[in-house]
């Protein structure tokens, strides 16, 4: 079966998702994800022209909270869970570029 998905697309997506794949994994995932997308083509059997997309099952609106300050977490407890911390902050290795 020809996959609707190309190997380089899977590689690109893996990069976007910050995952690295071996060549064998790339082959396997290309095939497996291709099967799911192939199955998804059955959606084209419906005429969806003009149908509104539903992102939420129920139409709640204007759910807000009042602007009140509540207690924050204890910093030491939070930083104790961090892989690396220094001077009350979370430490990371070199950042390669500015945020977009």
């Amino acid at each position: 079966m020809s996959s609707p998905l190309r190997r380089e697309e899977v590689a690109h997506v893996a990069k976007l998702a910050r995952l690295s794949l071996t060549d064998a994994e790339l082959d396997l995932f290309t095939e497996q994800l291709g099967q799911v997308l192939e199955h998804a083509n059955d959606m084209n059997s419906l005429n969806l022209e003009g149908v509104v997309a539903t992102a939420h099952p129920f139409g709640l609106t204007n759910v807000v909270r009042s602007d009140e300050v509540r207690a924050s977490l204890d910093r030491d407890e939070v930083l104790a869970m961090a892989p690396d911390a220094q001077d009350g902050r979370f430490a990371v290795p070199r950042i390669m570029g500015e945020a977009p």
Binding site: D87, G88, R89, F90, A91, V92, P93, R94, I95, E98
Partner: peptide, 11 residues
């Protein structure tokens, strides 16, 4: 940022 070895984050 350029040339730094390590960064510390405050949220």
């Amino acid at each position: 940022l350029q040339g730094a070895e390590r960064s510390l984050v405050d949220y």
